[in-house]
Amino acid sequence: MKPLIYVLEDDADIALVISRTLKNEGFTIEAFSRRGSFLNRLKRQTPDLCLVDLSLPDGDGLSVVTEYLRVSNIPSIVVTGRSSLTDKIIGLEVGADDYVVKPFEPRELLARVRAVLRRSRQFEPDGGAKAQKTARFAGWEANFQSCTLRDRAGMESDLSASETRLLEIFVKSTGRVLSRSQLMDHIRTSDEDPLDRSVDARISRLRKKLGDDSKSPTLIRTVYGAGYIFSSKVEWV
Rank of each mutant, 00 (worst) to 15 (best):
M1Y: 13
K2Q: 15
K2E: 14
K2I: 10
P3Q: 09
I5T: 13
Y6V: 14
Y6R: 12
V7T: 13
E9N: 09
A12K: 06
A12M: 06
I14W: 10
A15I: 11
A15G: 09
L16H: 14
S19A: 10
R20D: 15
L22G: 15
N24E: 13
N24T: 13
E25L: 04
F27M: 11
F32Q: 09
F32L: 06
R35V: 09
S37A: 03
S37G: 04
L39P: 14
N40E: 05
R41Q: 11
L42K: 04
R44C: 04
R44A: 10
D48R: 13
C50R: 12
D53I: 10
D53W: 06
S55D: 06
S55E: 11
D60A: 09
L62V: 09
L62A: 06
L62G: 06
S63Y: 13
V64A: 10
V64L: 12
V65F: 13
L69A: 13
I74G: 12
P75L: 10
V78W: 08
V78K: 04
V79K: 12
G81W: 13
R82T: 04
S84A: 01
L85H: 02
L85V: 04
T86A: 01
I89R: 01
E93P: 02
G95H: 10
Y99D: 00
V101S: 00
K102V: 08
E105F: 14
L109Y: 05
A115C: 04
R119S: 03
F123W: 14
F123I: 10
K130F: 14
K130C: 08
K133I: 00
T134K: 08
R136D: 07
F137P: 03
F137R: 06
F137C: 05
G139L: 03
W140H: 07
W140I: 06
A142L: 04
L149M: 01
R150L: 06
D151L: 10
A153G: 14
E156W: 02
S157V: 05
D158Q: 01
S162G: 01
E163C: 00
T164Y: 01
L167D: 00
L167G: 00
E168I: 00
K172E: 07
G175C: 02
R176W: 05
R176T: 15
V177L: 09
V177D: 03
L178I: 12
R180D: 04
R180P: 03
S181C: 00
L183M: 05
T189I: 01
S190M: 04
S190N: 03
D191L: 02
D191S: 04
D193T: 01
D193H: 00
D196L: 04
D196G: 01
S198T: 00
A201P: 03
I203T: 03
I203K: 07
S204L: 08
S204H: 09
S204C: 07
R205S: 05
K208T: 09
D212G: 11
S214Q: 15
P217L: 11
R221P: 06
G225D: 15
A226R: 15
A226H: 15
Y228W: 08
S232D: 02
W236V: 13
V237E: 10
